[in-house]
Lab assay of single mutants.
Amino acid sequence: ASVAVIAAGTQGNIFATSALRSMRFLQILRMVRMDRRGGTWKLLGSVVYAHSKELITAWYIGFLVLIFASFLVYLAEKDANSDFSSYADSLWWGTITLTTIGYGDKTPHTWLGRVLAAGFALLGISFFALPAGILGSGFALKVQEQHRQKHFEKRRMPAANLIQAAWRLYSTDMSRAYLTATWYYYDSILPSFRELALLFEHVQRARNGGLRPLEVRRAPVPDGAPSRYPPVATCHRPGSTSFCPGESSRMGIKDRIRMGSSQRRTGPSKQHLAPPTMPTSPSSEQVGEATSPTKVQKSWSFNDRTRFRASLRLKPRTSAEDAPSEEVAEEKSYQCELTVDDIMPAVKTVIRSIRILKFLVAKRKFKETLRPYDVKDVIEQYSAGHLDMLGRIKSLQTRVDQIVGRGPGDRKAREKGDKGPSDAEVVDEISMMGRVVKVEKQVQSIEHKLDLLLGFYSRCLRSGTSASLGAVQVPLFDPDITSDYHSPVDHEDISVSAQTLSISRSVSTNMD
Rank of each mutant, 00 (worst) to 15 (best):
R313G: 13
S249N: 03
D342A: 06
S504A: 15
M174I: 09
R237W: 09
P275T: 06
I351T: 03
R258L: 08
H386N: 14
S284C: 08
S299I: 12
D423N: 11
S319P: 13
E337Q: 10
Y373F: 08
P230L: 12
R411T: 08
V436L: 03
P408H: 03
Q335K: 01
C235F: 03
R305P: 15
S445T: 04
H272L: 12
I351N: 05
I351V: 06
V437G: 02
S483A: 14
T500A: 08
T349S: 13
P279A: 15
D255A: 12
R305L: 13
M511T: 07
D388Y: 15
A413D: 04
D418Y: 07
L501H: 14
Y184C: 08
R305G: 14
D187E: 03
S466W: 12
T465I: 07
E492V: 10
G252V: 06
E201K: 01
F200V: 11
F456S: 11
L357F: 00
F302V: 13
A206P: 08
S395I: 05
D401H: 12
W300G: 13
R217P: 00
S261G: 15
S497A: 15
A323T: 15
Q271E: 11
S261N: 10
H491P: 03
A197D: 00
R256L: 06
I257M: 09
P226L: 08
G434A: 08
G260C: 12
A384P: 11
D341Y: 09
S175T: 07
A165S: 13
A323S: 12
S333R: 13
D484A: 03
A498T: 12
Q297P: 13
V400G: 03
R411S: 05
K449Q: 01
Q402E: 01
H491Y: 14
P324L: 13
D484H: 14
E415V: 14
G417C: 04
V436A: 08
E247G: 11
S311Y: 02
V496A: 05
S422F: 12
M344R: 12
T294S: 14
I430T: 05
P324H: 09
H448Y: 08
A197G: 13
R352G: 05
I354N: 01
A384T: 13
V426A: 01
D377G: 04
S502R: 15
D322A: 07
I494M: 04
I379N: 13
P231H: 08
E440Q: 11
F366I: 02
A346V: 12
I403V: 14
I356L: 03
P408T: 00
E326Q: 15
E380G: 04
D480N: 06
A471S: 15
S281P: 15
D342N: 05
V221I: 12
L199W: 09
S506T: 13
E425D: 14
Y170N: 03
S445F: 01
P488T: 15
A233T: 01
D410A: 06
P276A: 05
R371Q: 02
F243Y: 05
Y184F: 15
Q444E: 03
G407E: 05
R207G: 07
S269T: 05
T482I: 15
A467P: 12
S175G: 04
M278I: 13
S395T: 02
K419M: 08
I343N: 08
A384S: 10
N208T: 09
T241N: 01
I494N: 12
G246A: 09
P238R: 10
E195A: 00
Y186C: 03
S262A: 05
S422C: 12
G385R: 15
V400A: 11
G391R: 15
P275A: 03
I253M: 02
G288V: 15
R207P: 05
D480V: 06
I503F: 12
I494F: 03
T465N: 10
R256C: 12
T266S: 13
M344T: 05
T266K: 10
S466P: 15
K332Q: 03
S504Y: 10
E247Q: 15
A290P: 04
S249C: 03
Y184S: 13
P268L: 12
F366L: 12
H486R: 03
V472M: 10
A165G: 05
T339K: 04
N510I: 10
M251I: 05
P479L: 12
Q286P: 09
S319Y: 05
C336F: 10
D512Y: 13
F359V: 03
L476V: 15
V375G: 11
E321G: 12
T500S: 12
S301I: 14
R411G: 01
A413P: 01
C336Y: 04
S262C: 05
D428Y: 09
P238T: 05
P226H: 14
R237G: 04
T398P: 08
P421A: 03
Q444R: 04
T266P: 10
H272D: 08
E326D: 14
G252R: 05
G409W: 12
I257V: 12
A424P: 06
L452P: 03
D341V: 01
F243C: 11
A166S: 09
A362D: 00
G385V: 09
F200I: 14
D512V: 09
V436E: 08
R406P: 13
F477C: 09
Q297H: 07
K419R: 09
L360R: 07
L198I: 09
P282S: 08
P191L: 09
R256P: 07
P238L: 07
V496F: 04
S311P: 14
D490H: 06
H448N: 00
P293L: 09
S495C: 07
L211R: 07
R217G: 06
C336W: 11
C244S: 09
K412R: 07
P293T: 08
M278V: 08
F308C: 08
T482N: 07
G209W: 01
R462H: 08
S483Y: 08
H236P: 13
C235G: 10
K365E: 00
D223V: 09
S504F: 09
E327D: 14
P226S: 04
P475A: 13
C460S: 08
M433I: 04
D173H: 03
A177P: 08
T241A: 03
G409R: 02
S188T: 10
F477V: 14
R371G: 01
L461P: 06
V232F: 11
D255H: 09
M511I: 08
L390Q: 12
K365T: 01
F200Y: 10
Y485S: 12
T398I: 12
R264P: 06
T277K: 14
H491R: 13
S333C: 02
E285G: 07
V347A: 15
I189S: 07
F456Y: 09
V347M: 07
P213L: 14
P345L: 07
R207C: 07
L387M: 04
S495T: 10
I494T: 13
Q271P: 08
I379M: 03
A219T: 13
T306N: 09
G239C: 06
A320S: 10
C460W: 14
L476M: 12
A424G: 05
L452M: 07
R355S: 04
F456I: 07
H236Y: 01
E247K: 12
P268S: 12
P421T: 05
H486P: 09
T509P: 02
V427M: 09
G470D: 11
I253S: 13
R435L: 07
R459H: 07
